[in-house]
Write a protein that binds this DNA or RNA. Structure first.
Lengths: 160, 160
DNA sequence: GATGAAAGCTTTTCCCC
DNA sequence: GGGGAAAAGCTTTCATC
C-alpha cells in the first residue's frame, strides 16, 4: 500500500476535518469525486485511516484535569502484566497507557474532573495490581494536542 | 448547555464512530432522526463536539516511534515561554505539549519513524530555545490510546 | 486511472404535535 | 422537546474514454 502525494493531501485534510464533502475534498486535491472516493476507500481498507470519530471538549464535559502518571513495578512477569493491562484498560478515565523504556515502566494519561476523582482512579488502579512506585504530574495547561500525525515520512517515491 | 443522558449516549457513539448514519444513530438512542440531529447540532454549536476527524494508523504511515520528552527550564519568564511555545507547536512531529506541575516543566509527545528522526526533532527544538534539562522515554508498546473521553462526569441532573 | 451522469442514500428543513 | 414527510444535498455506482 504505497501512499503517494495525493493520498497524503487527502489524509492531511481528513485528519483535520472529516466532515468535508467528497466534492469539496476532491476539488481541493485537484481530483474529481470518483477517483478521490476510491483513494479514501483504499486508505480505509488498508487501515491507514483507522476510524472516524468526534472529538469532544474535555472542559465542557467536566473533565478539567489531565494527569500523567508514571508507574514502576517490581514484578516483571507475565501474570502481573496481564493483570495490570486488564485493570488499567478497563478504567475509562485512563485514556492512554504506554510501556516505556528507561526508569519508569509505564506512562498513563488520565482525564478526570478534579484531584478527588483522580484519587478515586488511583485507588481503583492500585486495587487491581501491586505497584512499586507511582508518580503523578498534573497538566497545568494544554499547549498543543492534535490527533493529526505528521505525514512527511509516509514515502513512496521521490517524484510524488 | 446541560448534557442529558440522551446526549451522552449520542456522544458515546460518535466518539467511537462518527460515520454512523443519522438514522442508525437515532435508532440506537431511541429517537427519530430530527430530534437526534438537533441534539448533535447543539452539541456542535456549544463546542462539546469540537471537531470530527479521521484517525490514522501511525505504523502504516512510517511513524513507529512514540517518544515522551520531559523538559525543564531555568528561565521562568514570559519571553522564554513564548519562544518555546512558538518553536515547539510549529514542529508537526510534536503532537502534544503540556505544561506540568511538579519536577518537570513540560511534557511533549513526539511521533517519528525512528531514533534518528527523533534526534532531528530534538535538534530543531533546542535550536529554537534554551533548555535546562531534556529527558526522553520511548514507548515500547501502546497498550491503550483512545480519543473517547469518559462521559460519566458530564452531569446535568440525577434523573437523566 | 479519470470522467460525467444517474441511482440510491442521508442530511436538513419545515410544519405539526 | 419530539415526530413525520418533503426537499436538498451527498455518496456511490456505472458506463465511457
Amino acid at each position: 500500500m504505497p501512499i503517494d502525494k495525493k493520498d497524503r493531501e487527502i489524509l492531511r485534510i481528513l485528519q483535520e476535518d472529516a466532515t468535508i464533502s467528497l466534492n469539496d475534498l476532491a476539488a481541493k486535491v485537484n481530483l474529481t469525486p470518483t477517483p478521490c472516493w476510491r483513494r479514501i476507500q483504499k486508505l480505509q481498507t488498508d487501515g491507514v485511516i483507522r476510524k472516524q470519530v468526534a472529538l469532544c471538549d474535555a472542559g465542557k464535559l467536566n473533565l478539567g484535569l489531565t494527569t500523567f502518571v508514571t508507574i514502576r513495578t517490581s514484578q516483571h512477569n507475565e501474570e502481573w502484566m496481564q493483570r495490570f493491562v486488564a485493570g488499567a484498560t478497563s478504567i475509562p478515565e485512563i485514556v492512554e497507557i504506554y510501556r516505556l523504556s528507561g526508569d519508569a515502566d509505564y506512562l498513563l494519561k488520565i482525564v478526570v474532573p478534579d484531584i478527588a476523582r483522580y484519587d478515586s482512579v488511583y485507588k481503583r488502579l492500585i486495587r487491581s495490581v501491586e505497584l512499586l512506585d507511582v508518580s503523578s504530574a498534573f497538566a497545568m495547561e494544554t499547549i498543543k494536542c492534535t490527533t493529526a500525525l505528521p505525514l512527511d515520512y509516509s514515502t513512496s517515491d521521490a517524484h510524488d
